[in-house]
């Protein structure tokens, strides 16, 4: 029988649909009976959505400008070579 700790180990696989059919049924049955694990799965999902909405805009603008500058010089050098 699946215990709460077992479910916590495979919770991501369940959320991503990576579990086999038997394990998926076991998790679903456990979730029917266990409010704590329902909270855990729900909260883990919320945490994932938080990640998806959050991290795409993390870039140090100084670093980006240094790259811009290098690209600009490389484009000039490439044009010079082609002339």
């Amino acid at each position: 029988m699946l215990m709460c700790r077992d479910l916590a180990r495979i919770a991501s696989d369940y959320i991503d649909g990576e579990l086999g059919p038997m394990d998926t049924v076991s998790v679903k049955l456990h979730l029917l009976m266990c409010g704590h694990c329902r909270t855990f799965i729900g909260s883990l999902r919320t945490s994932l959505e938080l990640m998806r909405g959050h991290s795409s805009h993390q870039l140090d603008e100084d670093f980006a400008r240094r790259i811009d500058e290098q690209i600009s010089q490389a484009l000039i050098a490439r044009d010079d070579e082609q002339d």
């Binding site: 704590h36 329902r38 909270t39 855990f40 729900g42 909260s43 999902r45 919320t46 945490s47 959505e49 938080l50 998806r52 909405g53």
Partner: peptide
């Protein structure tokens, strides 16, 4: 777990 899972991301 004590999170309020009804609070949306």
């Amino acid at each position: 777990p004590s999170l309020r899972s009804n609070e949306s991301a």
